[in-house]
Design a protein around this nucleic acid. Structure first.
Lengths: 230, 230
DNA sequence: TAGATTGTTAATCGATTAACAATC
DNA sequence: TAGATTGTTAATCGATTAACAATC
C-alpha cells in the first residue's frame, strides 16, 4: 500500500541527489545511510525510511550503490537534461538571476527574460530580453513549466495569472505578494495545480532579527533565574 | 506553564505583523482571527492559538485591536527601528541585494558591503563597499547581528566563521554550502547560537521541476486507472 | 436576547525517532 | 562467525484541526 511521497520527501531526495553526484565525482561507489544523513543533516533512519518509501533498497551490509541511487532518484524526480526557465521582470534581482552562473552548472537554462520597459528589450542578448506581451506565446511555444517572478509587486498578480494560463506550473516568487493558484485557472481542477515557492528576502531578514532577538531573550531568562510570570 | 514559542510561530507572527501594518494604513481598527488567517493562508484556529500562546487576548465579540496587536507583536519580536545588515560578496547577487529598494521600506539598512577584489572597493559609495579584511572590526564596531552571505562557495566557510567570531548571529546564506554553526564558535555553548537561513536558488528551481513533474505523474496515475504495482 | 467570536481542550494527523529483527 | 547495516514496526513528538463552552 504505497505511501504518499510528501513534499518534504521530494525536497530531501533532491538534496540526496546532489550529494550523490559529488560523491560519485570523487570516485565513491557505495554509500551508507549515515553518510547521506550527515551530508544533509538528518538521521540515518530518515534516509532509510525515505528510500524505503520510494522502494529503493540497499544491501544489508554494503550500503547503497551510488550509481543505482542516482539513476533511481533521477527517474523518480523526473530529472530531464534541460531545465528551461523564464524570468519575468528584468530589474536588479531579475537581471542578477538571468546571469546567475550557478544555474548552468546545475543544468538550468534561462530561456528568456521579459520586461515591460522598451528600453530593456534586447532579443539578441543572451539570454534575450523580450517584451512581456510576447511572454504567453513564448511559454506555449517552448513548453515552459517553471518561471521566476521578479516583477514589481503591483504587476505580480497579473503576470502570474497570465503565466498560469499559458501553462507555467512552478513559480519562484521574489515579490512580496502572496500568490494563490486556486481560482485563477480556467478550469476548476486547479486547486493544487501549481506550486509557488516564495523567496521573500526582506521577510527573511526580519525573521533573522526576530529569531536572534528571541534566542537572546530565552538565554537571558534561563541565565538570570528560574522565575516566570505565570 | 508557558508554552515554548517555536520557530514556526515566530515566522507566522512576523507575517501577521506585516498584514496588520497594511490594515492599519487602510484605516482599520479591529481584526478577526479569520481575516488574519485568510491573509496569511492559515485557519482562524491557528491565529487564535498563536495569540493565546503569546498571551495576547481579544474581545469575545469584537475581535482584536490592531493597535494592541501591532504593539504586542513588535514587543515580542523585538522589532527595533533600525535593522542593520551587512553583505559579504559584491558579485551580481550581492550587488543586487545591496541596492534592493524593498529593504528601505521595511526598515532594513545595508550598512556596508564587503569584497576581496580591490577593484570593487569603494568606501564612498552608498552603501560603501569595504575590503573583507575590515569586516570583523566593522561588525564589532557597529554591533552587526545579521548578515547576507553572497560570496563564492569556496569562500563561504571562512567568511562565515569570521562573522560568527565577531558576533553575527543570523545569516541569510546565498551560497550552496551547508553552514553549521556548532563547533565553529570559540566557546562550546554555541550549539544553537546562530541561525542560518538558506536561499539556494538553483535547488529551489530544481525542486519546482521535481514537484511539477511529480504532480503530473500523480494526476496521470489517478486519471488513467486505479492500478498500482504493489 | 441572539448571534458571533474568542480561548482552550481534546482529537487528529503526519513526521520523526527508537529499536530491533533480519541478514549480508 | 561476528559485526555492521538495512528495512520496518511501533512509540514519540509536535503541530494542526475540530469542537464547543464562555461571553461580549
Amino acid at each position: 500500500m504505497q505511501e504518499p511521497i510528501s513534499e518534504n520527501i521530494v525536497l530531501r531526495l533532491a538534496r540526496y541527489l546532489r550529494v550523490l553526484h559529488k560523491l560519485k565525482s570523487l570516485g565513491f561507489v557505495k554509500v551508507f545511510s549515515n553518510n547521506l544523513g550527515d551530508a544533509i543533516g538528518v538521521t540515518p533512519a530518515v534516509v532509510r525510511k525515505d528510500f524505503s518509501i520510494i522502494k529503493i533498497s540497499g544491501n544489508k551490509r554494503g550500503g547503497y550503490s551510488i550509481d543505482t541511487l542516482i539513476a533511481e532518484l533521477e527517474r523518480i524526480l523526473g530529472k530531464s537534461s534541460r531545465q528551461q526557465v523564464i524570468v519575468a521582470g528584468c530589474g536588479r534581482i531579475g537581471t542578477a538571476l538571468m546571469n546567475y552562473t550557478e544555474f548552468r552548472k546545475e543544468g538550468i537554462e534561462i530561456s528568456s527574460g521579459f520586461d515591460i520597459d522598451p528600453a530593456k528589450i534586447d532579443p539578441d542578448a543572451s539570454p534575450p530580453i523580450l517584451h512581456v506581451d510576447q511572454m504567453q506565446d513564448f511559454i506555449v511555444e517552448h513548453g515552459i513549466r517553471v518561471a521566476i517572478l521578479a516583477v514589481p509587486d503591483q504587476a505580480a498578480a497579473s503576470v502570474f495569472e497570465r503565466m498560469v494560463e499559458s501553462g507555467v506550473r512552478g513559480f519562484l516568487n521574489f515579490t512580496t505578494v502572496e500568490l494563490k493558484c486556486a481560482g485563477k485557472c480556467p478550469d476548476e481542477t486547479c486547486e493544487a495545480e501549481c506550486i509557488v515557492h516564495n523567496v521573500n528576502i526582506s521577510l527573511e531578514i526580519e525573521n533573522l532579527f526576530y529569531l536572534v532577538n528571541l534566542r537572546n531573550q530565552l538565554q537571558d531568562r534561563v541565565v538570570v533565574d528560574g522565575q516566570q510570570t505565570n
